[in-house]
Design a protein around this nucleic acid. Structure first.
Length: 852
RNA sequence: GCCCAAGUGGCGGAAUGGUAGACGCAGGGGAUUCAAAAUCCCCCGCCCUCACGGGCGUGUGAGUUCGAGUCUCACCUUGGGCACCA
C-alpha cells in the first residue's frame, strides 16, 4: 500500500480542475449566483499565513456554495499601489513598477499550489493602466456630479525628504527616515464629499444584518452623530469684521455654567489675531505641531492663551466671557469654537483651574449637593439630576430632557438652532507620491483647474523616474507635467498628486464582475453579480476600507456605474483573526534582545531550549508574525513539508475563525497525521469484505448527524466546529463494525464533507472509492431528518441542581412518567435521603431537577 | 482620557439558561517491534478515597433562577479602536 502523498495528488487534481475550468465563472441566469470575495492582497512579495487563512475560509465557502447549486464568482487581484514599492525603490534602487510586478508573479506562484478555487481569468492589479484609467474615469464623473472638491488641508511635511508623511511615519515629531522635525504644512488638496453621506451611511448600518456587530459599532462611532445647539456669541470688542463667534455644543443645558469661550488655533479669528500678537502666533504654531489623534489630544496637557476678546452671554448681556485659544479644540469638528462649562466637563475643569477661570455648577446629583472641586460632575445623560442654575423651568430632570428643552427654547426665542453634527470628515484623497493613480486634471494659467478629457485617459505614470533625490518624481520630471489644456488648448501643467490607495480598493469588487469592460463596469455583469454575497477580511479594515467602499457604491450609483441595488456592496461580512506564532527570545551578550527561529529551538515540557547549546529561552506566546521577531512561518515551507491540504486544515481547525489562531509545529503535524489516517482508514475499507449487519444503521445515523452538523457549522462560519465533528466521524468510521457497503457509503460522505477544507485529498479518495466525476462538481450530501434523533434519550437527573443520576427513556414519554422513573432511581433516592421533594422540574428531552 | 470586546484544564478551545471541559495538542500507561519510527488501545480539571463515592471548580464579588460559563450589576486583567500603513 502506498500512503498519503500530498505532493503527487495535489498536483494531479489541480491540473484536472484547470483542464475542466471548474472555477471560471460565467454569467448564468439558470442558477442562483454567489459572489464570494476576500480582501485582495498587497503584493509584498511573500505569501504569509494570514493570507492562507483568509483565502482558505473564502475557498471553503466558495466550494460549499458550488456544491449547493450556486454559480460562484471567486476572483483574485492585487492592491498594488502604495508606499512600500517606493520605499523599496528608495532603499535599493530599482523601480516600483518592476518591484510590484515581480512580487505579483512570486506571490501568484505561491498561491496556486494552495488549491483555491480562484478564477484567475479575472485577475488584475490596481497599478495596471487598464484599471486605474477606469478609476480616473470614475473620478471625472464624481467631479462632474459635485462629489469631489479642492480645499486647503494640513499635512505632515518632512522638509528633508520633501515629502508628506503618514501619521505612522512620524516618530516623536520626527520623520522616520530623515529624522527631521516634521512640519505641519497647508496644501490645496482633493477631497471626496463623503460627509454629504454621513447620515445615510450611518442609518444604513442598521440594515447590515450579516455584518459583525463590532464592525457596525466601530463605523457608527467613526461617523459619530451628535445632536446639539449652534448659536452665536456677540463679541464686545469686535475685531475687523469679526463681530460674532459661532459655537456648537452638545450640552446647551449647561449654558448657565459657562466660564469661557474656546476657539481652535486654526479658527479664522485665531489666524487674524496671530497677525497682531507674538504670543498668540507662537501658541498657534505650537498647536499646529501637535498630533491631531484623539487619544494624543486627550492625553496632552491642556493649554491655552487669552485673546483679550470678550463676548456677551446670549442670555445675559451684562455677563462677559473671555475668549481663549485652546489646544484641544479641532477646527474640523463643529464650528471650531465651543463654550466651556468646567463644572460638567473634566477637560474644561482642568483648563479652568489652570488659568483661574470661574467654575459654576448648574446641577447637582439627587443625593449629593456639593459644588465641584477637582473632579467634574459628569453623570450619564439619562441620569436624573437637580438643577440649581438654569434658564428653563426644569428643576429635576435627566440631562437629555434638559438638553431637548433647551434646544426648543433657543429655537423658539430665535437665538440658536438645533444641529446634527457628524464627526466624519471629508476624505482627503491627494497623495504627494509617485506610485499611485494620477489625478486626471490639469492646471491652466487661463482656465484654472480643468478636468482631463475622457478620451485622453488613462493618464499613465511615466516610467523614467528615479528615487535618488528627495521629493515627488512627478514634480521634477522634465516633460510629464507639460500638457495641453483640455479647455482652451493652451499650455498647461498636470496635477502631480496621485490618489490615496484606498480609492483603488473602493471599487475593485465591482470591476471583478467585468474586468475587461470598456467602461468601469458593464451594466449586465454588474447587475448580475453584485452584491458581494460574502466578503472576508481582516478586522483592521473595519472602518476605512469598508466605509470608503460604501461611499463609493453610492457615488457610483449616482454616476450610473452601479445599479440601485448595489448601494451596500457587501451583503455579509466576516472578519477573521490573525495567525500568530510564539517568539523565542533570549538576551545577547550586549544586553539586546535576540530572537531565535523556531527551527533553532527544542521544546520540552512547555519550555524552550536552544538546540546548539541547550540554553533556555523565553517563550512569548501568540505574537503577531513579524520578520524582525523571527517568528514567521512560511506557507511555502509548510506546503513543501506537508502539502496544501494540511495547511488548509490546520489554519481552520484550532480556533474560531474570528479569533487569532496560534501556529504550532505540533498542531500542523497533527493535522497531517489526521489526513494520512483518513487516507489509510478509507484504504482499509476499500480492501475489506464485511457483510451487512446490525451496526450499519448506527453508522448511517452517525453519517447523517455528521452531515447535518458539518453543514450547519460551515453555514455559520464554525469551521473549527466542522473540523472537530469530522475528527469524531473519522473515529467512528475507523472503529465501526458495520459492513463494507455501509462503510463505503460513509466514506464517500466523509470525502464530500471534507472537500471544502481538503479538496485534493477528497478528490483522491472519491476516485479511489470508484467515482468517475469530480467531487468538486458533486452536489452536497443531503440529510435524512428521520435519522437525526434516536428513539430513546438519556436524561440527566439533578437534585437541587447537582447531577445525581441518569435515566434512559423513550423520546416522547410523558413528563409525569419521567418524574416517576427519575424519583425511582437508586442514586436519586440516596441523594434525597428520605426527604420529600418540594418540586420536580421536568424539561422534556433535556433534564430533570428534583428540589428538596 | 473615551468607546468596545474577551477572560473556561498544562495549552488551543466545545457547550439553543439544562450532564462544564466536545475535538485537538501536550503528558502518562500498554500493545506491536530485536530496537526505533509509524500505527493501534487505554487514562488524563483540582482535592479526599484502595475503591464505591464525595467535595470544589468557567477572572473576582454580589444578584436573578428549580438550575448560570451563558442573564444583571460592580470590580480586576488582557486585547482592539479612537482620521494619510496596507
Amino acid at each position: 500500500m502506498s500512503g498519503y502523498s500530498p505532493k503527487e495528488i495535489e498536483k494531479k487534481w489541480q491540473e484536472k480542475w484547470a483542464e475542466q475550468k471548474v472555477f471560471q465563472a460565467q454569467t448564468d441566469h439558470s442558477k442562483p449566483k454567489y459572489y464570494v470575495l476576500e480582501m485582495f492582497p498587497y503584493p509584498s512579495g511573500r505569501l504569509h499565513m494570514g493570507h492562507v487563512r483568509n483565502y482558505t475560509m473564502g475557498d471553503v465557502i466558495a466550494r460549499y456554495k458550488m456544491s449547493t447549486g450556486h454559480n460562484v464568482l471567486h476572483p483574485m487581484g492585487w492592491d498594488a499601489f502604495g508606499m512600500p514599492a517606493e520605499n523599496a525603490a528608495m532603499a535599493s534602487g530599482g523601480h516600483p513598477k518592476e518591484w510590484t510586478y515581480n512580487n505579483i508573479e512570486v506571490m501568484k506562484s505561491q498561491m496556486r499550489p494552495m488549491g483555491w478555487t480562484l478564477d484567475w481569468t479575472r485577475e488584475f492589479a490596481t497599478c495596471d493602466p487598464e484599471y486605474y484609467g477606469k478609476q480616473q474615469e470614475l473620478f471625472l464623473d464624481f467631479l462632474d456630479a459635485g462629489l469631489v472638491y479642492r480645499k486647503n488641508a494640513v499635512v505632515n511635511w518632512d522638509p528633508v525628504d520633501m515629502t508628506v508623511l503618514a501619521n505612522e511615519q512620524v516618530e516623536n515629531g520626527r520623520g522616520w527616515r530623515s529624522g527631521a522635525i516634521v512640519e505641519r504644512k497647508e496644501l490645496t488638496q482633493w477631497f471626496f464629499k463623503i460627509s454629504d453621506f454621513s447620515e445615510e451611511l450611518l442609518d444604513a448600518i442598521d440594515a447590515l444584518d450579516n455584518w459583525p456587530a463590532k464592525v457596525k459599532l466601530m463605523q457608527s462611532n467613526w461617523i459619530g452623530q451628535s445632536k446639539g445647539l449652534e448659536f452665536d456669541f456677540e463679541i464686545k470688542n469686535s475685531l475687523k469684521n469679526y463681530s460674532r463667534i459661532k459655537v456648537y455644543t452638545t450640552r446647551p443645558d449647561t449654558l448657565m455654567g459657562a466660564s469661557f469661550v474656546g476657539i481652535s488655533a486654526d479658527h479664522p479669528l485665531a489666524k487674524e489675531l496671530e497677525k497682531q500678537s507674538e504670543e498668540i502666533s507662537a501658541f498657534n504654531k505650537e498647536c499646529r505641531q501637535m498630533s491631531t489623534s484623539e487619544a494624543d489630544m486627550e492625553k496632552a496637557e491642556k493649554k491655552g492663551v487669552d485673546t483679550g476678546l470678550r463676548v456677551r452671554h446670549p442670555l445675559d448681556p451684562d455677563w462677559e466671557l473671555p475668549v481663549w485659544i485652546a489646544n484641544f479644540i479641532l477646527m474640523e469638528y463643529g464650528t471650531g469654537a465651543i463654550f466651556a462649562c468646567p463644572a460638567h466637563d473634566q477637560r474644561d475643569l482642568d483648563f479652568a483651574r489652570k488659568y483661574k477661570l470661574p467654575v459654576i455648577d448648574t446641577f447637582y446629583g439627587l443625593e449629593n449637593s456639593s459644588p465641584v472641586k477637582e473632579t467634574a460632575f459628569v453623570p450619564p445623560k439619562t441620569e436624573t439630576v437637580q438643577w440649581i442654575n438654569h434658564f428653563t423651568d426644569i428643576d429635576v430632570a435627566s440631562g437629555q430632557e434638559a438638553i431637548d428643552k433647551t434646544i426648543d427654547l433657543a429655537e423658539e426665542n430665535d437665538w440658536g438652532k438645533s444641529i446634527t453634527n457628524f464627526r466624519l470628515r471629508d476624505w482627503g484623497l491627494s497623495r504627494q507620491r509617485y506610485w499611485g493613480c494620477p489625478i486626471p486634471v490639469v492646471h491652466c494659467g487661463n482656465c484654472g483647474v480643468v478636468p482631463e478629457k475622457k478620451e485622453n485617459l488613462p493618464i499613465t505614470l511615466p516610467d523614467d523616474v528615479t528615487f535618488d533625490v528627495p521629493g515627488n518624481p512627478l514634480d521634477r520630471h522634465p516633460t510629464w507635467r507639460k500638457c495641453e489644456c483640455p479647455s482652451c488648448g493652451g499650455p498647461a501643467l498636470r496635477e502631480t498628486d496621485t490618489m490615496d490607495t484606498f480609492v483603488d480598493s473602493s471599487w475593485y469588487f465591482a470591476r471583478f464582475t467585468s474586468p475587461k469592460s470598456e467602461k468601469p463596469t458593464s451594466k449586465e455583469d454588474v447587475s448580475y453579480w453584485m452584491n458581494v454575497d460574502q466578503y472576508i477580511g481582516g478586522v483592521e479594515h473595519a472602518i476605512l476600507h469598508l466605509l470608503y467602499s460604501r461611499f463609493f457604491a453610492r457615488a457610483m450609483q449616482i454616476t450610473g456605474h452601479l445599479p440601485k441595488t448595489a448601494k451596500e456592496p457587501f451583503e455579509a461580512l466576516f472578519t477573521q483573526g490573525m495567525v500568530t506564532h510564539a517568539i523565542y527570545k533570549s538576551i545577547g551578550s550586549d544586553g539586546r534582545d535576540l530572537f531565535h527561529y523556531p527551527e533553532e529551538v527544542e521544546l520540552r515540557e512547555g519550555k524552550a531550549y536552544l538546540i546548539k547549546d541547550g540554553k533556555e529561552v523565553t517563550i512569548i506566546p501568540s505574537a503577531k508574525m513579524s520578520k524582525s521577531k523571527n517568528n514567521v512561518v512560511d506557507p511555502v515551507n509548510i506546503v513543501d513539508a506537508f502539502g496544501a491540504d494540511t495547511a488548509r486544515w490546520f489554519v481552520l481547525s484550532d480556533s474560531p475563525p474570528e479569533r487569532d489562531v496560534e501556529w504550532t509545529a505540533s498542531g500542523a503535524e497533527a493535522a497531517n497525521k489526521h489526513l494520512s489516517r483518513v487516507y489509510r482508514v478509507i484504504d482499509e475499507i476499500i480492501k475489506s469484505d464485511i457483510s451487512s449487519n446490525s451496526d450499519d444503521e448506527t453508522l448511517s445515523k452517525e453519517m447523517h448527524k455528521t452531515t447535518h452538523d458539518v453543514t450547519q457549522a460551515i453555514e455559520s462560519f464554525g469551521f473549527n466546529a466542522a473540523i472537530a465533528r469530522l475528527y469524531s466521524f473519522t473515529n467512528s468510521l475507523a472503529k465501526s463494525k458495520a459492513g463494507t457497503e455501509a462503510k463505503l457509503s460513509a466514506a464517500k460522505t466523509l470525502a464530500q464533507l471534507m472537500s471544502p477544507m481538503t479538496p485534493h485529498l477528497s478528490e483522491e479518495i472519491w476516485e479511489k472509492l470508484g467515482e468517475k466525476n469530480l467531487v468538486s462538481r458533486e452536489p452536497w450530501p443531503t440529510v435524512d431528518e428521520n435519522l437525526l434523533s434516536d428513539d430513546t434519550i438519556t436524561m440527566p437527573i439533578q437534585v437541587n441542581g447537582k447531577l445525581r443520576g441518569q435515566i434512559e427513556v423513550q423520546k416522547d414519554l410523558e413528563p409525569s412518567e419521567i418524574e416517576i422513573l427519575a424519583l425511582a432511581q437508586e442514586t436519586v433516592q440516596r441523594a434525597i435521603n428520605g426527604a420529600s421533594p418540594k418540586k420536580v422540574v421536568v424539561v422534556p428531552g433535556r433534564i430533570v431537577n428534583v428540589v428538596i
